[in-house]
Design a protein around this nucleic acid. Structure first.
Lengths: 117, 117
DNA sequence: CCAGAATATCCTGCTGACCGCATATAACGA
DNA sequence: TCGTTATATGCGGTCAGCAGGATATTCTGG
């Protein structure tokens, strides 16, 4: 994990929001992230791909849905840095609203059951 | 301090190297950083200016020399994140060599006495 | 006032990031 | 096989970041 790439990945509002949301929620599919961000799906998908290529996040296919989570092999210093950021910014905007928007979302795919909208 | 700007500032090898060196050494003038980086002075200066505009570092004029240090008003979460990075990367390249290069530099301006090169 | 050292800024070209839109792929159910 | 849902990718235009080189600014000492 080259640090330059990691910080470049964090240097975008949407990516930082998604990453902090993943850090707080554990694992989310693209439709959940799209809903929480209030952004267009292709944009969410492309920014997720960017973070995946850098090794920040990992994807897992489960039927129609693709779940993203923090990459398990992320070095400890990166996890510590992210934890510091989440601790400092998680309670403020826009991250608080992001979690709220996610909570009010209906028909979320839980695990692998239930259907989506 | 907007996080995007902070991470964008860290998303460049030269800036990250300079910042970690400042974090380790406390305060350095431009000529010391230029020597340690082995880069052209205008480039060092411009990247320092970029970090200054974002609020990452602060400059202090002392005669001919301008000393840079980590900005005192940096929020705690940013300091924690930087500490995690420094702790994880400080012992490896290129940051180890940077400190070594700085140590072998002659005629460093100490405090405000002594002349430079 | 003049020379020189340390630092900052201007200019130009270039590459890469970003966006919006449209479309392609993959999986599931009937 | 067909339609539908979820996700990814290709394309074109625009804009910001970056490098190099030259030059300007600021301070010091004489």
């Amino acid at each position: 994990m080259e640090p330059d790439r990691l910080f470049a990945a964090l240097a975008h509002p949407l990516r930082l929001r998604m990453l902090l949301l993943l850090l707080a929620e554990g694992e989310l599919c693209v439709c959940e992230l799209t809903h929480a961000m209030g952004a267009a799906q292709p944009m969410v998908s492309r920014h997720l791909a960017q973070m995946r290529e850098v090794g920040l996040v990992q994807d897992r296919r489960a039927g129609l849905w693709i779940h993203y989570r923090l990459h398990p092999d992320l070095p400890q210093w990166a996890r510590d840095a992210l934890a510091a950021v989440a601790d400092g910014l998680g309670r403020s905007e826009p991250h608080r609203s992001d979690r709220a928007a996610l909570a009010t979302m209906g028909n979320r795919p839980e695990g692998r059951a239930a259907c989506c909208s």
